[in-house]
């Protein structure tokens, strides 16, 4: 039985901890600098292209970039979650408490998701700037944001799992990064095979394939199912990893 208020207690503590350390500010600064730069470039380019719309020229590529950059940033945010607790010997403190293992994982997930959403919220400036020049295709912006949020929650669950494997933060972030980038590269290699059926199957298992629909303004029900099962799978793995001490 999951008690939301207990999950909140942990999530609040984690958030307070994260916002009192410099890491999140450094990452946010870096992220908004990179995104601002890219946005500016796309904007300049789009003024010279007469055949493409603002959506095709700016919104779609910028969201593609946000997604790609979060593959690098998410591991850095989630690496602390369990690895640091283990290093500080505080994980046992949580495990002995009234919190269940699942509540601990959900609390950590919630706080990490809040952190990445905080970083993502910095990009909300772009649609506002576009709207000043008369841009009005809010459907695509909305579905792109939905897609990006679903993807980064997926990255966060992977990061949580990897963090629970080790007490070394660097190792945790590297494993997360390898899993995320690996699944992205899978799409490329699958495109090179001649086996159409296999390609379809593997494609379905990768995040970019599902994310791509969202950037075009298409929300497919099977993509939602895919993301939900993705979260469940990695939360289950994290749970098993926490229960490892009982083996």
């Amino acid at each position: 039985m999951i008690k939301p208020n207990r999950v909140m207690i942990l999530a609040k503590k984690e958030l307070k901890d994260a916002f009192s350390s410099p890491l999140i500010y450094v990452l946010s600064g870096l992220f908004s600098m990179m995104m601002g730069w890219l946005f500016f470039n796309y904007l300049l380019q789009s003024s010279q292209m007469t055949t493409t719309t603002m959506t095709q020229g700016v919104i779609t590529p910028i969201f593609g970039n946000i997604n790609f950059i979060f593959i690098f940033l998410c591991p850095l945010i989630t690496m602390r979650s369990f690895a640091e607790e283990k290093k500080q010997h505080t994980l046992d403190l949580l495990l002995r408490s009234e919190l269940s293992e699942l509540e601990i994982i959900l609390g950590k997930l919630l706080s990490n998701v809040c952190l990445v959403l905080f970083m993502l919220s910095l990009t909300s400036l772009f649609p506002i700037i576009l709207s000043l020049s008369g841009y009005s295709d809010w459907g695509v912006v909305g579905s792109s944001y939905t897609g990006i949020i679903l993807s980064i929650i997926a990255y966060t669950t992977v990061g949580l799992f990897c963090s629970s494997l080790t007490d070394n933060q660097i190792v945790a972030s590297l494993i997360t990064f390898c899993i995320l980038l690996g699944s992205m590269l899978l799409v490329i290699s699958v495109n090179a095979t001649n086996n159409y059926l296999l390609a379809l199957m593997i494609q379905y298992l990768t995040i970019p394939f599902h994310y791509e629909g969202f950037t075009r303004g298409v929300i497919k029900s099977y993509s939602l199912i895919y993301f939900l099962s993705y979260y469940a799978f990695f939360i289950l793995l994290t749970l098993k990893s926490l229960q490892r001490r009982k083996w």
Partner: peptide, 19 residues
């Protein structure tokens, strides 16, 4: 098992809440 980034009061409050 202490969190170095927390102050004593907040830490004990947190422990009290989860225990």
């Amino acid at each position: 098992p202490v969190y170095p980034n927390m102050n004593v009061r907040d830490y004990l409050k947190f422990i009290l809440a989860i225990y």
